[in-house]
Design a binder for these strands. Structure first.
Lengths: 264, 264
DNA sequence: GAGGCAAACTGATCTAGATCATTTCAGAAA
DNA sequence: TTTCTGAAATGATCTAGATCAGTTTGCCTC
């Protein structure tokens, strides 16, 4: 029936008016008629298969993209040739902010899954920015949001243990996938262990080992790309580097007299 | 004579018209009269002493700032209480982009030196954005630039050796300080070893050791905060992880028969 | 259902850089 | 000048995670 693999992702027609994601769209505050009038400048519902590039590092920037469904990763190819994953993007997120200044993409983005993505031409972007103050504000807000998100990744990478990184990553995924906490959650890891490792500044083997350990601790059940979070409270503990077996803090004694023997 | 320590930084009057940094200013493309008309919304030449905060993480955002002279660092305080340096900012750079979306600063910025900084009220920012298309474009371009810069820091941190990190950091400083390459350069490190270490995802001792090693290799002369770059070509080699003493690659043999003894 | 293949997992070993413990040094105060 | 103080340098040791070397697993294709 569905030979394309996309039909289930498209419950609506090829129009902004019926878009089931319009609440998350960059242009959400424009009236429908505004957008429809500029329809020629929007490429709606472009289909990407797993592994397809949305754009490549070095490409001239033609569009800003909005992920409607599916998932993508963005990466940077270093001079030495190895690639560094710098982000994962899900429905509602905007792609292409890296090229507004220079017109050249500083990163590549590719689909991790069959994905539907809309493109706003740069021309439309400029036009809306000058004619529509609300749109412009929304755009700048998203820029700012992106900068704060980058900070978070820096924090995640900096001086955290492998276990913390993986725990934080999983919790972040839970939030972004919109799952509520405190119950058994099924998570479909759309990215490979190597992708996660690159993103977290680790090596695939380490990610694998940490996931296995977390499984042994009863926090989750791992079955390749299918993850089942069983105990997210414990996951939170690990994300703060407070594993179960940790000894009480030295100052747990405070309030009692400290034996002299411990001071000398 | 100059008891304030600031006079030498201010060769011009307290006006945008005479500002010696106007070419680098966010509002550079506005005509002088435009800006002067909005003068009440610009706090010109605010003086900060070494250690003063320009703003703190969690503060409500009142202004966008432009560094006119001096230097600042931005940092994030983690939940555990330790601080992470995420950037250094010199003349011409804009501060405060992290709070445009939420109105709350996600990071703190403090002066590393006596610094002169101008503040644009958020109100002015909004006004210029709606009335002046060129200003708005410039602002968005700077946002995009900031995002790309964040990518660079991610690359710097990710999977690079301590020597690479320090070498890249020094080369980056050379560029940002505007020094031309290929000659002996005097560099005044305005930040501490601890700041550099935090920024590079290392520990102060490691930064110290690497600088000492670079000195032994004849690349630079270290005298606390005064650095003298003697051989920047070698620094470039180290930044690519190609130190001098490295053995020839294994495939240097290719073309010759490989001795069986090496295979077993 | 067999064969092929790439991702994921696991165990053994190694090492870059962290940690801990001093020492040195430069600038400020007295 | 001497003393004081905090940053920086240096040496010795330790360890988290990388690296290397397989093995296992799930998923194609025929």
């Amino acid at each position: 029936m569905d030979k394309t693999g996309f039909t289930h992702l498209l419950p609506n027609k090829d129009s902004c008016h019926d878009c089931f994601k319009k609440e998350q769209c960059l242009a959400k505050q424009l009236t429908i008629s505004d957008v429809e009038g500029l329809s020629a400048l929007i490429s709606k519902n472009i289909k990407y298969r797993c592994g397809d590039y949305i754009y490549r590092q070095g490409d001239t920037s033609e569009n800003i993209f909005i992920v409607k469904s599916g998932a993508t990763k963005s990466l940077i190819n270093s001079v030495e040739g190895n690639e560094l994953v710098i982000g994962f993007h899900f429905a509602g997120e905007v792609l292409g902010f890296d090229a507004i200044d220079t017109n050249i993409h500083a990163s590549s983005v590719l689909a991790l899954d069959n994905s539907i993505i809309c493109g706003f031409s740069r021309q439309l972007l400029d036009r809306l920015c000058t004619t529509d103050a609300t749109f412009q504000k929304e755009l700048i807000a998203r820029f700012s949001h992106e900068i704060v998100r980058d900070y978070q990744l820096l924090i995640l990478i900096n001086k955290k243990t492998a276990e913390q990184r993986v725990a934080i990553f999983l919790l972040e995924l839970l939030v972004r996938m919109g799952s509520s906490r405190g119950q058994v959650i099924h998570l479909n890891l759309v990215m490979s262990r190597a992708d996660i490792a690159s993103y977290l500044g680790l090596v695939p083997e380490t990610v694998s080992r940490v996931l296995s350990k977390f499984e042994r601790m009863g926090m989750l059940v791992v079955k390749k790309k299918k993850l089942q979070i069983v105990n997210d409270q414990l996951l939170v503990k690990y994300s703060n580097n407070q594993p179960l077996q940790k000894l009480p803090e030295p100052n747990a004694m405070e309030g009692n007299a400290i034996p002299l023997a411990l001071l000398y």
